[in-house]
Design a protein around this nucleic acid. Structure first.
Length: 295
DNA sequence: ATCCAGGATGTAT
DNA sequence: ATACATCATGGA
């Protein structure tokens, strides 16, 4: 077992593990002390979170000003990439326009960062996310891991990787419906088949500009503009992407009515112009803020 | 019971 | 291109 810690003192804008992992950006981490994420938004968790990337187990917890980790390999570079620790978060927030909603959202979750999820698990997660609550998306992705994921032993515990495209292409729509995927079941199977087919290469997505990547992603079954934006933002690193879900749409209606245009593309361009080049950061803070506020 | 949740697809116009 | 019905499932 390898282990270590990353010091967060010198990180511009800081880092907060719990809000980063429980704000509905990623569904690929399991928390030790809870079987579900129903306490989303409740601050102060110092629990361990675990994921499996390329067969390597990564475990991490947030203790004061350190990010402690234990893993099957040196996790420093992996965590820096997965949590975008190289982003100058302070400058990003500073470059985002000031308004009452954004100010409150940024103040509510200091240190929350955009994740950089691996592509295929992110794609399938957000295909599953359609018309689903965050807590249920965690359940669905957990069910996929338990049913199809490769078992990995680490430090006396067993963990499961997110299933590969081959594994999901091999299953049936009916089995996925049994896992609670509903009408998204055929989307997952067909998209997994597309990924595994030889005529479909994944390589281009990395090289495309934001709009081109977003449009290209909609070729997958079950991927429309909103899910494509989530993959652009949470996997491909396009920080200008603004997923227009029901929460952010109502926020636009209420707070930015001049951006509430007809059509996804028009509204997207308007809100991106309003929020600036890191609009995705603003979107994610607003989403988490609105979704967790109690009053 | 009715409505809603990080929407997308198929069909008719 | 745009409008509309339809698609599962579970929680409030």
């Amino acid at each position: 077992m390898d282990q270590g810690s990353i010091h967060l003192d010198t990180l511009d804008g800081g880092f907060d593990l719990q809000s980063t992992l429980e704000s509905g950006q990623t569904y690929l981490w399991e928390r030790d002390d809870e079987t579900t994420y129903e306490q989303v938004g409740k601050r102060g968790s110092n629990a361990w979170y675990t994921t499996v990337v390329n067969g390597e187990v990564l475990r991490v917890r947030h203790r004061e000003n350190r990010l402690e980790w234990e893993a099957t390999v040196d996790a420093t570079a992996h965590l820096t990439r997965l949590f975008r620790l190289d982003d100058d978060l302070a400058s990003i927030i500073n470059a985002t326009p000031d308004d009452p909603l954004l100010d409150r959202a940024f103040e509510s979750f200091p240190g929350m960062r955009i994740v950089r999820d691996p592509f295929f698990p992110c794609l399938i997660s957000f295909i599953c996310s359609a018309q689903m609550r965050v807590s249920r998306i965690f359940e669905m992705v957990s069910n996929l891991r338990e049913e199809y994921g490769e078992i990995i032993e680490f430090n006396g515990q067993t963990y499961r990787a997110f299933p590969s495209a081959e594994q999901l292409a091999r299953t049936s729509e009916a089995k996925l419906r049994d896992l609670g995927l509903g009408y998204r079941a055929p989307y997952v199977v067909k998209t997994a088949e597309m990924i595994t087919s030889n005529e479909f290469s994944l390589a281009p997505f990395r090289d495309l500009e934001y709009v081109a990547a977003r449009d290209a992603l909609t070729a997958f079954v079950g991927v429309g503009p909103k899910v494509a934006d989530c993959v652009c933002l949470f996997s491909l690193g396009h920080l200008e992407a603004v997923p227009l879900d029901t929460w952010i749409r109502s926020a636009i209606d209420e707070h930015y009515p001049e951006c509430a245009l007809d059509g996804y593309d028009q509204m997207s361009e308007a809100i991106r112009n309003r929020f600036g080049p890191h609009a995705g950061y603003a979107q994610t803070y607003v989403f988490h803020y609105l979704r967790t506020r109690t009053d």
